[in-house]
Design a protein around this nucleic acid. Sequence first.
DNA 1: CGGCATCCGGGAAGATACTG
DNA 2: CAGTATCTTCCCGGATGCCG
Lengths: 230, 230
Amino acid sequence: MKLEKITQTENPSRRSYDDACGTAHALDLVGERWALLVMRELMLGPRRFGDLRAELPGISANVLTQRLEGLEAMGIVKRRKLPPPSGVQVYELTPWGLESEPIFQVLGRWAARSPHHDPTLAFSAASMCLSFRTMFDASRAKGLALDAGFHVRGEDYHVSIREGVLTAVRDPAEPADFVLAGEARAIAAAVYGGVPLAALEANGALALKGDRTMAERFVTLFPLPPQVGA
Amino acid sequence: MKLEKITQTENPSRRSYDDACGTAHALDLVGERWALLVMRELMLGPRRFGDLRAELPGISANVLTQRLEGLEAMGIVKRRKLPPPSGVQVYELTPWGLESEPIFQVLGRWAARSPHHDPTLAFSAASMCLSFRTMFDASRAKGLALDAGFHVRGEDYHVSIREGVLTAVRDPAEPADFVLAGEARAIAAAVYGGVPLAALEANGALALKGDRTMAERFVTLFPLPPQVGA
DNA sequence: CGGCATCCGGGAAGATACTG
DNA sequence: CAGTATCTTCCCGGATGCCG
């Protein structure tokens, strides 16, 4: 029973750029701190509040609440209650919210050339899958059919390559040619950092099961653009 | 005399997401308020401090100073002093900064479908030109060769269409088939709002010189995507 | 424990006045 | 014209606590 609820949703004082430009309006929608990263974590499917908190290092609970409320008010995110008995509440992107994926692609591609990029920082599994979608070079996968499994922090991800098309999804522990288990940043070290899989296995960062040849082929499919001034 | 100057520029405490994800790093680079809009105004070429201030309704001088400093530190913007006698200082994008154009394209395209978009707000001439680049539908311009001039707030813009390719630049008052003079939002009303040119001329919002048939063809070349829920 | 409200400190943004 | 100085306001981040 909310009395005196300050409905900030209907309060027009939200800082707006008041600009008809599409970019400006996009920033009104998703320009607040953390907003795009929350959406990133939802790109692979519904997530719970606690999942989001765990995957977004540094966000505080109240800010996450505010972002989810704001994104829901904008029609980008929808909250849904799973049917009993689980009954848990999850947040998911609306169809229009899902259409934001190109934003992540171009931001990622552009920022990858930054001279200030530090690839050794934390890396969520969703980021990893989206980066695969972004950086995949179909010309390197001619005639390749491959199913990769990743086990990161208790969850399974599946990446499949068929006829030059890559798809990445969460959860369905489908059969895979190989499975890599470990932190996303270790997988990234192999794919983007050129660190040999054997080295990452040797120091315990990764565990590989299955077809090693396929795994070593996989990590060559995602070339990074050259950094500026390099 | 400033004693105790807090040199925030060399202070690494700048809020960062500390995330290896490309999107997160992009937000570290250009996620601060106004940053992308400053870049937008620079996409068509160098601008002076005062130009930027005038074209960004609502930005305050100190924030603009901070953004320009930050973008320069990141290698996105460069300040340059024009040779005497003008000797004025201008800001321009670096080559890498120019490569950010796809960001504006996808943000604009995605936000154009927003149910909250209000196209009657202010609209800078740079936004207009970028929106032409973004929304241009080459399939509607088959076999069309066209040169359009726009006169907005004392400056000239030139849009040319050749063999399905649109280019938009500032300043070079090149020969054009027609010239539209008025506020950018009035031009947008014709191109995106479907308002007849004659109506905008009648109420004084626009003045048309030159080939009217070409102008009326031009405004049909930029279809908007359907809004969500419509 | 998940979701959310509240309080507080620090810092970024907004507005205005001021200077070379 | 091109910023700087200063003050206020608001947002963000962290901690705590309530409630189902």
